[in-house]
């Protein structure tokens, strides 16, 4: 019979945080966050189909301070999951499997996804021409 009190692998409580494990769990967290982005996309499109009032309410919600804060987090989640996903597809093809390469690509993914997030928001604000 299974013993429910046995500790489960990978024994997170005794593991020292490392770039490899941290980015692995971040990939999962951002993936779950992006499922909510899919829900938001469905709500946004449905609001537009429903009419100007419903779309206006959705836009007001997204343009509020809290809305922008959440959207910024969604933007980073998308770019991180996308860049780290490319890293995963590389591993699937057995590219960059040396520990030094794994650490380097991990740091690269963090830098590139942060840069793309900031760049997108700068472009969006530049497009509107005001804050």
């Amino acid at each position: 019979m299974p013993n429910d009190t046995r500790p489960l692998s990978p024994h997170l409580q005794v593991y020292r945080p490392q770039i490899t494990s941290m980015l692995s769990i971040l990939h999962r967290i951002t993936g779950v966050v992006l499922a909510f982005v899919a829900l938001l996309l469905a709500y946004w499109l449905s609001a537009a189909a429903y009419g100007p009032e419903a779309f206006g309410r959705a836009q007001a919600l997204l343009e509020s301070g809290f809305g922008r804060f959440v959207l910024f987090g969604f933007t980073f989640s998308l770019f991180f999951h996308l860049c780290n996903g490319i890293r995963h597809l590389g591993w699937d093809m057995l590219w960059g499997f040396e520990l030094s390469q794994v650490r380097f690509s991990g740091i690269l993914v963090l830098i590139v996804s942060s840069a793309l997030t900031v760049l997108s928001w700068l472009m969006a604000y530049g497009h509107v021409g005001k804050l």
Partner: peptide, 30 residues
């Protein structure tokens, strides 16, 4: 994996579209 590969161009297109749609009204979005 296959859906991930398809999402690479689709999500980049979507982010680019959202940037150019920032601040537009209902009629422009429709």
């Amino acid at each position: 994996r296959m859906s991930a590969v398809a999402l690479l161009p689709l999500s980049l297109w979507f982010v680019y579209s959202l940037i150019s749609l920032t601040g537009t009204d209902y009629d422009t979005f429709i």
